[in-house]
């Protein structure tokens, strides 16, 4: 019996003759907060959707809470929370009505969390959902996905439209969820600083492939940019070379050793790493 909340095994997906997901292998366990980083169109949304049975993969397997995502039973569904990139579904409802209906589908709905969050995001329960700003709709979607404390939380660009204060509040609640409920979170974003604050792990997606998947702390400790003279040959064979240009290389597996012929060894922020790997 696997303890993994979400598992991708050698997953491929082709769409319109394009390989949108390539050899995806990922495991998400309780307590992990995985930040999915990648450019627009890199395949993040497809990756997340395939965990929910919204998109069917071509080869490989996906296990959501140990089951086939297209065949989740009621019990498993009430343990998964999902916030899609585009909010849609409760047009015509007021916030109060929407929450009333939505909560009726879950046994474990936390009313105090709901009220707390409504206040925090400054949402008026009598406002009509379709008149909310994008940020407010996103906040409502977050409430709807988290109020029943799911074991697996899947968020697609969840904080893109939230202001910095709301983002901060959201992140703090995310911690509570993952720590206290032992939940696992996977969220996609292109705001690297959010990942650096919140995530325990980072998965970097480029052209449908997961180029990097590691613990964030580990990543920062062991990834370095090495500058060298283009005319000199430099020996980097003991490291994992993630990217190389004529005068610099991004390596992983660095452990504070000396590198002969290196002009400069520097550590990178996640943003810098992201930019360098796409250069």
């Amino acid at each position: 019996m696997t303890t993994a909340l979400l598992e991708y095994k050698n997953v491929h997906k082709i769409f319109n003759q394009n390989m949108v997901l390539k050899s995806i292998n990922l495991i998400i366990e309780p307590g992990m907060v995985v930040g999915l980083l990648g450019k627009n169109g890199a395949g993040k949304t497809t990756l997340l959707r395939s965990a929910l049975g919204l998109i069917e993969i071509d080869t490989g397997e996906v296990f959501t809470l140990g089951a086939n995502p297209t065949q989740l039973n009621t019990e498993l569904k009430s343990q998964v929370g999902y916030v899609p990139q585009q909010a849609f579904g409760y047009e015509g409802f007021s916030i109060r009505e929407a929450l009333d209906l939505h909560s009726s589908f879950y046994c474990e709905w936390d009313n105090s969390l709901e009220q707390d969050w409504l206040k925090r995001f400054e949402l008026n329960p009598d406002d009509m959902v379709e008149n909310l700003s994008i940020g407010q709709r996103q906040a409502l979607a977050l409430i709807m996905a988290m109020a029943y404390r799911p074991k697996l939380l899947i968020l697609d660009e969840p904080v893109a439209s939230l202001d910095p204060i709301a983002r901060r509040e959201f992140m703090l609640d995310l911690f509570d969820l993952s720590l206290e409920s032992g939940s696992g979170v996977i969220f996609s974003t292109h705001i690297t600083s959010d990942i650096e604050r919140v995530a325990t792990h980072v998965a970097l997606v480029k052209d449908g492939e997961v180029k990097l998947f590691n613990e964030l702390d580990e990543l920062k400790s062991s990834i370095r940019k090495v500058n060298f003279n283009p005319t000199q040959t430099i020996n980097l064979s003991q490291f994992d070379i993630l990217h190389q240009t004529t005068n610099a290389a991004i390596i992983s597996g660095y452990q504070n050793e000396q590198i002969p012929d290196a002009l400069h060894i520097s550590s990178l922020s996640l943003e810098q790493l992201f930019v360098e790997l796409h250069a």
Binding site: S193, L216, D217, L270
Partner: peptide, 11 residues
């Protein structure tokens, strides 16, 4: 500084 090259726990 979350964006520094050093992991937060180390800082």
């Amino acid at each position: 500084n979350p964006s520094s090259g050093d992991p937060i726990y180390k800082q």
